[in-house]
């Protein structure tokens, strides 16, 4: 049995509310290998950020994990007590969030924040920790790192701040970094810089990355494999090239057609009618069935599991071999 670095197995995240329990992440399974970049892509409300938050143990109450397992190196981490989880967070799992300003404490210099994190997770001496902090800042491309280490977060621009956050996430040489929309708050020209940086660092350090984003372009440039999420479930997962070039799930197909791209014509974009269902009324069967152009009876009653296609895994009954005749019928 191959041992993956991170395994998420049938993860379920729920939010109890007055109008019943909302299932925000429903039976999500995937794995990430050593040094691999897994893109998790989806539109708002798809549950992609919550999946990331569940892995680092940062779900905001009343949200909680209601089922499934998360394993790091074969060891369960979803049911750990807070004290142990805290040791894993930062040391083995790093995190980069969307808004770099909220990830940094405005009252301390970035040097202090870096060295503190290093000292917490390693047994380096303060001098060594400081040397490593400077090295990290150099690694993430901050000019004059020896000087800038004494600066406060507000003295950095947005792009530079996100670099500092990445340095902070890499402090203890984590095995995996969860990056939740790391480039969304940044300008386009800075976005490209940050993507290139993340990619380079992970190659150099052999760190795995779970890259959560809504931007298919970022995924295309960065990820090795991609999981497309829809309404709290994985719609399709597979090698990034296959999923982008030859999407299999009708949702992925629609999504790819909806993205305007330079070099394509300027005729009408493919349009997925309707909107993602609210968590309060996710349809029975396949969550995508009311919007799906290829829907047939089974989709409305039975929920598909991830099924193998020629290239990727797609949770779509079109790829159930037993249904193959019906699939032909559905086309006619």
């Amino acid at each position: 049995m191959p041992n993956h670095l991170l395994e998420v197995d049938r993860l379920k995240v729920v939010f109890p509310t007055r109008r019943g329990t909302l299932v925000a992440v429903d039976d999500v399974s995937f794995h990430i290998d050593q040094g691999e970049v897994l893109g998790v892509v989806g539109e708002s409300g798809a549950g992609k950020s919550l999946t990331g938050a569940a892995i680092i143990g940062l779900l905001e109450p009343p949200g909680r994990i209601a089922g499934g397992e998360i394993r790091l190196d074969g060891r369960r981490i979803d049911n750990l007590p807070y004290s142990q989880l805290r040791r894993i967070r930062g040391k083995e799992i790093g995190a980069v969030f969307q808004d770099p300003l909220t990830s940094l404490n405005p009252l301390y210099t970035i040097g202090k924040q870096l060295t503190e994190t290093i000292e917490t997770h390693t047994d380096m001496t303060p001098t060594k920790a400081r040397e490593r902090a400077v090295q990290l800042l150099k690694d993430v491309g901050i000019p004059a790192a020896e000087k800038r280490i004494e600066s406060y977060p507000h003295q950095f621009s947005g792009g530079m701040r996100q670099r500092v956050v990445i340095a902070l996430a890499l402090c203890a040489n984590p095995r995996i970094v969860i990056a939740d929309e790391p480039t969304t708050a940044l300008d386009v020209s800075i976005q490209a810089q940050i993507i290139a940086l993340l990619k380079r660092l992970c190659q150099e350090h052999g760190t795995a990355v779970m890259l959560v984003t809504h931007d298919m372009g970022v995924i295309a440039e960065t990820a090795d494999r991609v999981a497309v999420m829809y309404a709290g479930r994985v719609a399709e997962i597979g090698p990034v090239r296959d999923v982008i070039k030859h999407p299999k799930h009708p949702y992925t197909i629609g999504l790819m057609g909806a993205i305007p791209a330079i070099g394509h014509g300027t005729e009408r974009l493919t349009q997925i009618e309707g909107a993602m269902p609210r968590l309060t009324d996710i349809p029975r069967g396949c969550a995508f069935n009311p919007r799906c152009p290829k829907v047939f009876d089974r989709c409305r009653s039975e929920r598909p599991d991830l099924l193998a296609t020629e290239t990727s895994l797609a949770s779509c009954w079109l790829y159930d071999d037993q249904r193959a005749p019906a699939r032909e019928a559905a086309h006619v």
Partner: peptide, 17 residues
């Protein structure tokens, strides 16, 4: 134009910005 992610995965080299 160099900053646009290469969604077609043509493998074109981007100028560092």
């Amino acid at each position: 134009l160099d900053t646009i992610p290469d969604i077609d995965m043509t493998g074109r080299q981007r100028q560092p910005v």
